[in-house]
Design a protein around this nucleic acid. Structure first.
Lengths: 203, 203
DNA sequence: GATATTATGCGTAAGTTATGCGTAAGTCAA
DNA sequence: TTGACTTACGCATAACTTACGCATAATATC
């Protein structure tokens, strides 16, 4: 299905609908879209939606609430730019970067939903070929399977480790014999931030 | 569809339209094209577009805004498609792949000139975080500096190693203590294929 | 070399679509 | 019934595309 041409403002609205939906799990209302872009009239939104649907970028259901559905992948917009949220190293909180930096990654690497990039510090995962300075591409998730490499927060400290469910809790295992396993119990504030889906290194 | 000949200036405009569209996800307006090339008159742009369309390089829709569409080879998606030439492992020739496969890599990773991708086999470079199955992005070059990671052919066999110039020849050092250094002398048929500029791993 | 044709770039204004305001009716669920 | 949404319609203006003319430079043809 070949899609029609869209204008910059139409694309911006389409992108907003897509990001909002991925972020909260349901589509924005026309009022929310209007507020986001600073428009006072719902007629404006309606007009945009009609045009986006006509061009084949949007699906709408008759009179259904919050039923906007973007069609297909995001329009080409250069490389797939993921937010680089900061640095992750054993024992430290994710360190926010000053500017909203991004990293270009291949489309094929990005998992469904929200993705972000972290720069690895330290050598706790060298056995897995994840070196200090590498970028890890992370698909946001609060669940993980055994053996998966995850970004996790333990008592406010971020780390990249192998996730293992064991009796009595969770083990976060490193891939470096010199770095000890983290045992997570119910006493710990523990949260999985996402699954590592890729590693990128510029030599 | 055989395309007509176009002049250097027509090609420059066509390329601009293509790159702009790939970059931002919608086509440029005539005003934007005029500003980019420093023309004051929209009639100029119109004339160019008419000619490019006539020659078969451009598609336009009647009175549609931002509907310029270049015809012909333009890699879809945001990544940079590199040819995957095959596999590289210690002691084997580069194994050609059946179909002309490509891998999407970030623009930012690609060096100037010709680039290609190789899939690594073996663990001679694990110390450098280059694992079996990883893709290495290679910028084609026949020269290398000391310490650089190169793809080289030695007596018809391809390998990824560290390049070191020493007395009496060249050493190709691995990053795995179990894999011996290759000493290259004038008796060997030796050639550098390129420099490793990046590593990509899908987890 | 002379002539014809094409490419280039300026300008202008008409024609068409996108944008944004507003409003009220229609629809659905609580 | 009410509130929260969607839909349809009208109006005005801005932004875009199109068509046309003019002049000159560059290229092709005889």
């Amino acid at each position: 299905m070949e899609k029609g041409a869209i204008t910059p403002k139409q694309k911006a609205m389409l992108d907003y609908i897509r990001e909002f939906t991925e972020s909260v799990g349901y589509a924005p209302s026309q009022r929310e879209i209007a507020d986001h872009f600073g428009y006072s009239s719902l007629g404006t939104i309606q007009n945009y939606l009609v045009r986006l649907e006509r061009a084949g970028w949007l699906e709408r259901s008759w009179n259904a609430k919050r039923a906007l559905k973007t069609i297909g992948a995001a329009p080409a917009g250069g490389g797939y730019e993921l937010p680089m949220l900061g640095f992750v190293a054993a024992g430290r909180p994710i360190e926010a970067v000053e500017s909203p930096d991004t990293l270009e990654v291949p489309h094929t690497m990005v998992g469904r939903g929200e993705n972000f990039v972290l720069r690895v510090q330290g050598d706790s995962m060298v056995g897995d070929g994840i070196l200090d300075g590498d970028m890890v591409v992370v698909t946001k998730s609060s669940h993980a399977n055994n053996g998966q490499t995850v970004v996790a927060m333990v008592d406010g400290e971020a780390t990249v480790k192998h996730f293992h469910r064991v009796k009595g809790g969770i083990e976060l295992r490193s891939a470096n014999p010199l770095v000890p396993t983290i045992n997570v119990t119910s006493d710990n504030d523990f949260r999985i931030e996402g699954i590592v889906v890729g590693v990128i290194r510029h030599c």
